[in-house]
Computed example of a mutant assay.
Amino acid sequence: MASVATLSFCGVTQSASERKTCLLSSSRSLQSDSYAFRIRTRFSLHSISIRASNLSSRFVVHCMSTGSDPPPVSETKLKFLNAYKRPIPSIYNTVLQELIVQQHLMKYKKTYRYDAVFALGFVTVYDQLMDGYPSDIDRDAIFQAYIKALNEDPQQYRADAQKLETWARAQNANSLVDFSSKTGEVEDILKDIAERAGGNGSFSYSRFFAVGLFRLLELANATDPAILEKLCAALNVNKKSVDRDLDVYRNLLSKLVQAKELLKEYVDRQRGYSSQNCASHAIRTAWRYYSTTL
């Protein structure tokens, strides 16, 4: 089905970059859909009509695309809420809502392609974030609803994460890096990533991918920074980006530990809402710091 978007237009621009800038300006105040506009304008527009606005002297451009536009963020969030209808404690719910927005933007990038290292990184972050959740059953149900809202397969995420974890435990620092000279299911996954990251296919680096690499190194007991450098080189990934993201990730883990200690103190002492609110604020602050450059 064709989609229609109304965008403000100040004049005819000359360059492609100027046209992109102009298209990002919305004539409506739709703050909640701002992400969707950014994504949609990357798709080709098959027909454009221009009319003068009755409210101002600006032109209004109607852009109609016959292609398959990505869903807006609001639709993904609604799918999650419809799939898991039980209340989620605010300490976790606020972070989950922010996280699903970030992952929505990653998922619908033109260069996005699912891979097992990305899945391992997300599963690692999710499990650490939700550690201590009151119910293991609910924690898994939330995971299922979350991934399905992004039109992906939660079983695939879990299976691929488990597969990489099992493989990494059997590796050492040398064998982990030397995947290109070996045969096997995980080795083939890593070779495919290296090929795509090297420019022979679609690859979109993210912080979840960096966390996935960190988890592989952790399980293989490969703690020497030189090993990370070799692994990044083998995968054709920028090590500076990975180092930066892992520093932020470690800081997140530290803040989450502090926040959960405050929550435990609240539960143990039952002294009202002050400690719970403090823990909730600490987790939200830590996660916002972590998610700003996902």
Score class of each variant (00 low, 15 high):
R207Y: 11
F203Y: 12
E187P: 03
L216T: 02
V186K: 03
L217Q: 14
V177Q: 00
A197P: 03
R207M: 13
S206F: 08
F203Q: 07
G201S: 01
A210I: 15
G184V: 07
F214K: 13
S202H: 10
E195K: 12
E185G: 03
E185Y: 12
N200T: 08
F203N: 04
S204K: 14
N221H: 15
G198C: 04
F203S: 04
F179L: 00
R196W: 04
S175E: 07
D224A: 14
A210P: 14
S202T: 10
E187R: 06
L190A: 00
E218N: 14
S206N: 11
F208L: 12
T183A: 13
N174E: 06
F203K: 06
F179M: 01
L176A: 01
N221A: 15
R196D: 09
F209Y: 11
I189H: 05
G184F: 08
E185C: 02
L176F: 10
L219R: 15
G199T: 10
V211C: 12
A197S: 11
A197K: 06
G198F: 07
E195R: 11
E187T: 09
R207H: 13
F179E: 00
F209L: 12
E195D: 10
E187Y: 02
E187K: 06
E185A: 11
A210F: 13
T183R: 11
D192Q: 10
V177R: 00
K191L: 05
A226S: 15
L217C: 14
N221I: 10
T183P: 00
I189L: 06
E218V: 10
G184I: 08
F214R: 12
D178S: 06
A197N: 04
V177D: 01
L176N: 03
G198Q: 02
L228F: 12
F214W: 15
F214L: 13
L176S: 05
N174V: 02
I227W: 11
L217N: 09
L213A: 05
A222C: 13
L216N: 04
R196E: 05
N221W: 14
A210R: 11
G184T: 09
L213C: 10
N174K: 07
S202Y: 06
S202F: 03
A194Q: 11
K191D: 05
F209I: 02
N200D: 03
V177I: 00
T223G: 15
R215W: 07
A226Y: 12
I189S: 05
G198E: 00
E187F: 07
G198M: 04
D224E: 13
E185K: 13
N221F: 15
I193A: 01
F208R: 09
L176H: 05
R196N: 07
L216H: 06
F203C: 07
I193L: 00
L213D: 05
S202Q: 09
G199E: 05
